[in-house]
Write a protein that binds this DNA or RNA. Sequence first.
DNA 1: TATTTTTACCAAAGCGCTTTGAACACTTGA
DNA 2: TCAAGTGTTCAAAGCGCTTTGGTAAAAATA
Lengths: 340, 340
Amino acid sequence: MNLKELAKHLNLSPTTVSRALNGYPEVGAATRKRVDEEARRFGYTPNTHARRLATGRAHAIGYVLPADKSLMIDPLFSDFVSGATDVYAAHGFDVLLHAGGQEEESAVYQRYAQGGTVDGVVVLGPRLGDPRINLLKKLKMPFVVHGRVGELDSGFAWLDIDNYGAFHRATKLLLDLGHQRIGLINGYEDFNYAYERRRGYEKALHERGLKIDPLAMSSGLMTEENGYRQTKRILQLAVKPSALLLGSMLLVAGAMRALNEMGLIIGRDISLIAHDDGLPFLNAASLVPSLTTTSSSIRLAGTRVAELLLGMITDPEAEHPHELWPVDLIVRGSTGPLNR
Amino acid sequence: MNLKELAKHLNLSPTTVSRALNGYPEVGAATRKRVDEEARRFGYTPNTHARRLATGRAHAIGYVLPADKSLMIDPLFSDFVSGATDVYAAHGFDVLLHAGGQEEESAVYQRYAQGGTVDGVVVLGPRLGDPRINLLKKLKMPFVVHGRVGELDSGFAWLDIDNYGAFHRATKLLLDLGHQRIGLINGYEDFNYAYERRRGYEKALHERGLKIDPLAMSSGLMTEENGYRQTKRILQLAVKPSALLLGSMLLVAGAMRALNEMGLIIGRDISLIAHDDGLPFLNAASLVPSLTTTSSSIRLAGTRVAELLLGMITDPEAEHPHELWPVDLIVRGSTGPLNR
DNA sequence: TATTTTTACCAAAGCGCTTTGAACACTTGA
DNA sequence: TCAAGTGTTCAAAGCGCTTTGGTAAAAATA
């Protein structure tokens, strides 16, 4: 059933039916009620594409995932987007997903923009000086970046967590507990968040006049396996750390395995702090000992990014929103004073 | 730039330009070349919605994730879909994602069908007697189920792995090694895959004339925490198992933690077999000891489901495809003979 | 050369909706 | 009582594309 048929059935013009359904004021109350009822009765839903063509609005948002270094799709993504689709759905927006493949990322954006396929996009996993930013600006496509790109973070909208501050504080906490040598197992540092975390970590060490040991750091894949490897490596250094800072809970899983194997007791022989994105399948609080974390819900961030993007689409003249979220430092059982 | 403008620029009719770009034969070779070149030069991309309205094809596929029991979005999903988007993109199809929220799942399907928003959908995480199957049949919406629904698995397309066979063989392997008491930490058994796995496990026990101990089984969330809890619980039973069967690598992470804590050596004091979906962040082979698994790539399954669905859309008259994939049993270091 | 067939193109209709501009009937104020 | 205003409805145009049903010119056939 389409609009014309419904209109004929109601003895009304398509115009009136359309206006009634879309809540325009120039429709009589009785008529509106009648239209609503019959539309529901027939299960009428306007044709998506006709509506989109007529209004010129795609009512859709694109999520384009970069074809990662490792071809590994970020396990955080599903959480990031799961909060968002609800927001979109409430506004009648669809979510288009493109997880990198053959087609170049920039080509996808171009296609989306030229074809009017989406009204806006979310940029994920930005890198330092990410070229996507300029491309999207050029295409005049509304977008919100989850994260930042370093240097000039203006002229576009972003939402980020305070990665710098989080790791700065986490490192300071460890220093206050007497730890002098602290390892860092980080994500790839061409991702801005990882870069920021290292900066925060280094700043805290500098503030105490401590040297930075490049060997006590690593930058790589956030997998269980890499967590295991790097933990082993770092704890076999000549001057071995008494504390470890980790970029994700996935790394923690591997680190714990390594520490167990080495017979080190977490919280006593070695202190651990990890960043926790709130992944539902790996709970920091329920570990034994419970894990001290810098915590921020990636799900909430996903929701908020969706709201910001919808706002930009509704009011394109408004200022580009920026949100820098503070990160909680939750002290639990995995951190303890230096054990000489 | 739209079709009409491009046509005017070329001194051709929109008809000819459209046909040239879409590869229809009734266009002169020279003309076609000229059109292609100018289209590229101007970066012309046809308007998605206009094309969809005119052709009546949405050129889009929907993935509707059930609002889970636990509100936990399945971490497997991103892998499942990441293989698929590439296939879709190659055929000019978009992927619409809807991760459960306020809107009822059935309402989303209805909206998709009525509005012509998508040409087909993928059904994820089917349960026994899942109502979505009948709804989609009624809506005449092409769909492929990843998994099955028990009983009558006909009249619709599906791709599944042989969960029954996998756990049957895995259990037999443990029995052959002398284990008599085997625990099972399973996913929620209203999901068909988990139900099938239990059946395979029970069958193997029956075949050896062994009793099934409901206490040695669990059905629940596949999280690290639950893996830990259930492992502890099961290994504290009066007659405690010497081997454990696990539904996912996520459970393994928790199980290993529990076993370490209890001072049990994997492969010696206790044998472990888990199902491995090939998640990139948790590698069974690199654990110590390496993990014996029933393995099947969920990414590959995602790719294949996409192909099947596209096939159904291309040729709606064809038989509904069914694929039951065998599951590899990969024996590694976590399984050993019973240690009396 | 006259006729048919093929090739290369086009005008116009239509996909299903929204929206502009106009029309009609009914109130209201003078 | 008439003019202006107000509340409701509609016809028709248009969104940008595909596709049907042509036509004119060129090539092939008789």
